[in-house]
């Protein structure tokens, strides 16, 4: 059998792209001390709003802008719930996800109720002609700009230091004059934007259309990747690549005669199981951010 190594590696980079965007958004959130289970819904909203704005305006850039705005708003909602009101973060996140998914499906149903599959234009791959580097623009941005920039911001910038301080020890941060609530708001809004842009990759780059359940658990995978990568930018990117390799491999196996007897569903489930296994092996005894899940109130 001729093993299509380059096809798998190229597919890996593509599959990893939305995960890198959204998981890095989750890293920002959690480094500031907030678990955002609204991630699945935020990605869904980004995918849908991006598609909708593109379909309405005919411009892909309007789509990207709409996805960005939906992410900012979703992040602001999570911030209102978890920072200002101090609601239980699991409940707030699941509620936000359910709400956003339902609103998107509702709108989709109203606008495209005749069941016609609307398609829009989508981003072209740069460097066409196939091969490893023939990827969508957002893939390049994710690996070459977003990840290095975020790595630097979290490590060295003033904002990054304040963000980490707020997530590790809000009492001390507050005493040092760092505005805890404002910093967390900034983290959630920025993180939400990255999640929604990651979701928009599915509609605006991959498919050029919107289907129900398009995100299908990728948000939950990102939450796992963040733990797996111990809240560090590059290990999280590595985790996304690990998941993507498993996914690309199963896509390749599905069209390989040798595996034609294996049910398709087993292959699709394979990457999820890889993530759980990876967590079980490398996720034990990880140190969570100090203020993880804890709302901050001045005593």
């Amino acid at each position: 059998m001729n093993f299509p190594l380059f096809a798998i590696l190229a597919a890996t980079l593509t599959i990893a792209t939305p995960l890198v965007w959204a998981a890095l958004g989750a890293v920002i959130n959690e480094r500031a001390g907030v678990l955002n289970l609204g991630i699945e819904g935020t990605m869904y909203a980004g995918a849908f709003c991006g598609f909708l704005a593109t379909a309405m305006s005919g411009s892909l850039w309007f789509g990207v802008a709409a996805a960005l705005v939906s992410g900012l708003l979703a992040g602001a909602l999570m911030a209102l719930l978890t920072v200002t009101l101090g609601v239980n973060q699991h409940v707030a996140g699941i509620g936000t996800t359910l709400l956003l998914v339902a609103v998107c499906n509702f709108t989709n149903r109203l606008l495209f109720s005749d069941g016609s599959q609307t398609t829009t234009e989508k981003f072209d791959r740069l460097l066409p002609g196939g091969g490893l580097l023939s990827q969508y623009p957002m893939t390049y941005v994710a690996f070459l700009i977003l990840a290095p920039a975020l790595w630097w911001v979290l490590r060295s910038s003033g904002f990054g230091l304040r963000l980490r301080a707020v997530g590790e020890n809000p009492e001390a941060a507050d005493a040092a004059g760092i505005p805890v609530a404002k910093t967390r708001y900034a983290a959630l809004i920025l993180g939400g934007a990255l999640m929604a842009l990651g979701g928009s990759f599915l509609t605006l780059s991959l498919l050029g259309s919107f289907t129900i359940d398009i995100v299908s658990g990728r948000g939950w995978i990102c939450i796992a990747l963040v733990i797996f990568g111990r809240w560090q930018v590059w290990p999280v990117v590595g985790g996304a690549l690990l998941f993507a390799v498993a996914d690309a491999l199963q896509l390749q196996l599905a069209i390989t005669p040798l595996f034609s007897d294996v049910p398709n569903e087993v292959l699709i489930a394979f990457p999820y199981l890889v993530v759980i296994l990876a967590l079980a092996i490398w996720g034990r005894g990880v140190r969570y951010p100090g203020a993880y899940l804890k709302p901050y109130r001045r005593a």
């Binding site: 678990l35 299908s216 658990g217 939950w220 996720g283």
Partner: peptide, 16 residues
């Protein structure tokens, strides 16, 4: 036994 966050693992097993 491994102190692995149950939120993530229970969520991931839903699509499975």
């Amino acid at each position: 036994h491994a102190h692995i966050d149950e939120v993530v693992t229970t969520l991931l097993l839903n699509p499975v």
